[in-house]
Design a protein around this nucleic acid. Sequence first.
DNA 1: GTCTATACTAGGATAGAC
DNA 2: GTCTATCCTAGTATAGAC
Lengths: 192, 192
Amino acid sequence: MKPNARERLIEGTRQLLWERGYVGTSPTAILARSGVGQGSMYHHFDGKPDLVLAAEQRSAELMQQQIAEAFAVEGTALERITGYLGRERDVLRGCSVGRLTADPEVMADDTLRAPIREAFEVLHEHLRRTIAEGVAAGEFAGDLDVDEIASAIAAVIQGGYALARAAQAVEPFDRAIRGVLSLLRVSAPRAN
Amino acid sequence: MKPNARERLIEGTRQLLWERGYVGTSPTAILARSGVGQGSMYHHFDGKPDLVLAAEQRSAELMQQQIAEAFAVEGTALERITGYLGRERDVLRGCSVGRLTADPEVMADDTLRAPIREAFEVLHEHLRRTIAEGVAAGEFAGDLDVDEIASAIAAVIQGGYALARAAQAVEPFDRAIRGVLSLLRVSAPRAN
DNA sequence: GTCTATACTAGGATAGAC
DNA sequence: GTCTATCCTAGTATAGAC
């Protein structure tokens, strides 16, 4: 029961976009990666942008699933945030969604940019809500701006990938994550 | 006295790399941007990788200059860090050095990766030292790991660009910066 | 639906004139 | 040193057979 051509094209394109971005992803490479022929691709999709959009939507969907799962667990706010940040990640590969922010073709086209924007909005909303709960529970300092902290945490993840890739080592990513978590922890009202 | 062809090729390539990355930067585009002819390019450089390396080195050099300037000012540790984070930046354009971490061709080649790695090392070192001074001066909590905080701050900058580009708005970048600074401030020993 | 054949443009580099 | 002409391959898409 091998997956159908359409599915394989989406997944092949998704992988290539993740590794090489929009310009770096050629139809020829997609066909080779997906193991289908030229005609099959143009039967299922209008062309490269159409196929890319489908692949982006898939990546965004997967990211949103992982976010939902990570934040659905029981625990304190700090535990849930720590859990999401500590998820198993192929750090040197980076983020399949964040990678696309580097592509001018994607950023310049509102349709192609939408899945990226939405995935980050969903992450921000989960972080925001969790941080607000933590503040309410006295876990974090009450004078923190929840949107600012949420953006800082999301940025640490994305930027952590960049630092790690530059060093070709996972350590800078892990350090950055531990750093922001230690700041969050230390921000706790003196009660603790 | 227009700049010579060599200089214009480096600057044109630097701009294109910044916008479009390695695969997205074609010799043809470089020539158009630089206003020189084909022969001129292959006279001064061995080919695309050689020219790209020169352009990368220029970007890394500029980044290191800006870092040195920002951290050379008088002030508390927090003021110097805030100063660097608040530097004037074309946020939606992103980081000319960080952009290249997305390129597999650059990351896979140690020579092409070196300028990126070094620029981030220099930034890390300045942040690390400044944070250590802040801890010594009682500005920040003493139980913070300076390397972790330095990595977190560097990551917020790079990740902030990604968030801003995804939203096509500067606000997420600014929020992330304010967020990490507020955590740093709030981490201060209760003395304040 | 999927394949192969074909077409056209652009990427990347060389040769040789000036 | 710089330019134009030329070359070959790969990117992107269409046509039409099976």
